[in-house]
């Protein structure tokens, strides 16, 4: 079971990396409250490494997808 979880987690990492590689403009940097803001390449390295910053980048992506697919994001946006 935990091996399967790890595989899914690796797949998700790869998905997030592919998305960042393909879509993120190179002039954007992400500040996450750690010492230095991250370039596109640095974000990818952290996701690959699975460290604290990388984990949060993946979680941000997952939370966003969950909110989009469940309709929660648009429900909240349309409430204001």
């Amino acid at each position: 079971m935990s091996g399967e979880k790890q595989e899914i987690s690796e797949k998700i990492k790869q998905l997030v990396i592919a998305r960042i590689k393909a879509q993120m403009p190179s002039n954007l940097k992400l500040s996450m409250g750690f010492e230095n803001s991250l370039t596109k390449e640095e974000m990818i390295e952290h996701v690959k490494a699975g460290d604290e910053q990388g984990t949060h980048i993946v979680n941000m992506h997952l939370n966003f997808i969950k909110a989009l697919t469940s309709g929660k994001l648009m429900k909240e946006v349309n409430s204001v």
Partner: peptide
Amino acid sequence: NINKILRTPSEPDTPFIVEGLWN
């Protein structure tokens, strides 16, 4: 702000900004 970005013509940074704001 999320609504504003979603309503303007899509830019490559749109999904990343929306994701960050949602975070």
